[in-house]
Design a protein around this nucleic acid. Sequence first.
RNA 1: GCCCCGAUAGUAUAGUCCGGUCUAGAAUACUGGCCUGUCGAGCCAGUGACCCGGGUUCAAAUCCCGGUCGGGGCGCCA
Length: 442
Amino acid sequence: MFRMPIRTHYTAEIKPEDAEKEVVVAGWVHRLRDLGNLKFIILRDREGLIQITLKKGVTAQELIDLAEKIKDEYVIAVKGVVKANKIAPKGREIIPKEIEILSRTVSNLPVSVSGKIESNLDTRLDNRVLDLRRPEVLAVFKIQSKLVQGMQDYLREDGFQQIFTPCLMGAASESGAEVFPVVYFNKSAFLRQDPQLHRQLAVISGLDRIYDLGPSWRAEPSHTPRHLCEHRGCAVELGFIKDEYEVMKVEENLVISGLKKVKEDCVEELELLGKEIKVPSAPFPELRFPKIYEILEEFGKKIPFGEDYDRESETILANYVREKYKSDFFFVNRFPFKVKPFYVMRVDEEPQWARSVDLIYKGLEVSSGGQREHRYEKIMEQIREKGISPVGMQWFTEHFKYGAPPHGGFNIGIERMTMQLLDLSNVREAALFPRTPERLLP
RNA sequence: GCCCCGAUAGUAUAGUCCGGUCUAGAAUACUGGCCUGUCGAGCCAGUGACCCGGGUUCAAAUCCCGGUCGGGGCGCCA
């Protein structure tokens, strides 16, 4: 089987200064360049690429014979000596002493890993395992990982505790969005659309400052480049707030910390993707209803007073903010209560408007949240106003009878953040194995 | 859920409007050959395709209908 000693280095760890060292590298054959009596194998692992150079007369003949059999994407291990060489990529190459083929391919790969031909997204997703080997695809997920890490770094420093909330629900978690039903013994259950309500319960139980990283499901048959049936969110909730502005402050810090982390730790990946990260500074611009109607009207967009805005408005507002404040990010606050769920807190003096906040990044909603209603009577009143069955929501509302501090939070979509950060044309690019109405495999 | 567009080798495409010179073209991958510093290596040769079903026609990749799958816009949303 595997007779070679285990890998001593990832490719990226090997530098020209390691000349004359004996190393073992292992990975996939990224590219082959056969010049006859001179052959190059470009080997790829998680961290990068390295060139294996075989020369007739220098390299043992049996290695050269073996190398002739190697094809793209074979898995090989190579033991050899590092040689510093200015004409080799990154100034170093490996002169092999031993090569072992660990796994072969059948011919005709459905996705070109070395990137000579760009496949359609659908073909790529059908063959996602192969697709993920492409360095530029791998880079997206390294960046995503750092983004989430950066967001968590901030949360932990600021006293937020990570919690895990249930994904199976005995009742729909929000009005409006479609839910996936689940067979749950002899009961009807659903996959959550949002960890929202359980986060609130966690906060009023006394956990105070929490975050939850996890999936949500929406059974919407949406055919757009920005919807998934399964997506992940970094959902934050905090208690004892004065108003929604404290929630927004947390969100700003979280975004800044995430983007900063990506900028610092993903220099090569960003370069590979040709992207530059603009780390925003706080506070982010804020647009509020009903002032938004006036702004929109300036640009010839008439939205009836008290109504929600549409996609076109979102674009108009994003352009407006980019021009006026030079910012990719902005908050939209004080949405009409009538378009928001029962649990949001209204402005007491102007009950038409809610302390409900969306975060828009490069013209796309990446998060929504705000201050929640914590007063039991008000919650019940709003449930009645929305025409929801109070009995059905009792599992949630009951707990507000026994002391609930003012609180608020938000859920920021991880795939959408990644998509906007890297200007990906489809959110599916930002999900490892995306779930869409038609796609449930692999 | 509504609306628009598309489907040609393993991949990505040309050809479709205006049916016949399409025996379907170039690329890349694949197979074979040449080549001692490539870096999307190069050169030569070869294999390989019109989504499915029905219709119109002397003749369909091309026109019409249905299906399936895919892309996008809106709604909704993270």
